[in-house]
Amino acid sequence: MSTPLLQVHDLRVEYASPRGLVRAVAGVSLSLDRNRILGLVGESGCGKSTVGQALLGLIQPPGRIAGGDIRFENRSLVGLPEREMRRLRGNRLSMIFQDPTATLNPVMTIGDQIAELFRWHRPRMRRKEVQTRVTELLERVGIVDADRRSRAYPHELSGGMRQRVVIACALALDPALIVADEPTTALDVTVQAQILDLIRGLQAEHGTAVILVSHDLGVIAETCDDVAVMYAGRIVESGPTAEVLARPRHPYTAGLIASRPSITAPDQVVRPIPGTVPDLANPPVGCPFHPRCVRAVAGCREGIPALSPTREEPRHAVACPLAA
């Protein structure tokens, strides 16, 4: 298994908008092995969700993949006909969305919704077996009394339970990769802890690779092996999670960490990053972070810095000439 499960090379996604072309993803490269959890972290509009959607072939007009390649299980997903993509989606790769209420069909029982996946992707599977698999899946995601609960409608379940059902759907066909886009953002903090435990458990038990998209560095720290920090459509820093969070090199990553009040040190003053995220229809010239960067020098306005490995730890890469 020398080639990674997923290799994204120079991915570009653009949206046509009345204000001009929005480059939501402006050249993202990453790779992911089986059995790993990669976190994509950033603020709204940084392109982290768009990357996730591109992986599942969910970019719709006026958006389009404008360049780059996505290789998954040794085949290219960019330009794959929708019919083929549909065979993969939910099957080899699947997605967990933020809002479980919007993901589930309100007029179908949760058992039927999971069973539908088997009917679609495994048409030969017998009814009885489908029923057994549905019950197993619900048990696996921690729903007690699964047989009876499978006959419940989504509105009869709490938010955390609904998200467990969504995860059961994502797992149903044993995918190699799951993209989870802010899977716990709509949930209470004690429920969030349980769902994150569940996601970690899946990876440990089944070797499923996970891409966890989140705005919350705490969630990333607790769940992911590796992290990629995105800003204005690009990865500005990446590496092993513990290393990146302990020794952030990019001024943006450092700023994000300093922006969060800490419960262990509440007297520590939060240091906000001045300004706001750039308008991607009209991005700043040069390094996209330079207008907000405390360390910016004249050179930062010339050319976009490439993501390059740091000297001390080659797996830790940073897109800032001042920090590398």
């Binding site: 603020e43 705005h215 922006s259 969060r260 906000p272 990053i273 706001t276």
Partner: peptide, 11 residues
């Protein structure tokens, strides 16, 4: 609000 902006409002 986003994390970096959250910190501005807290400050």
């Amino acid at each position: 609000l986003d994390v970096s902006v959250q910190a501005q409002i807290l400050a």
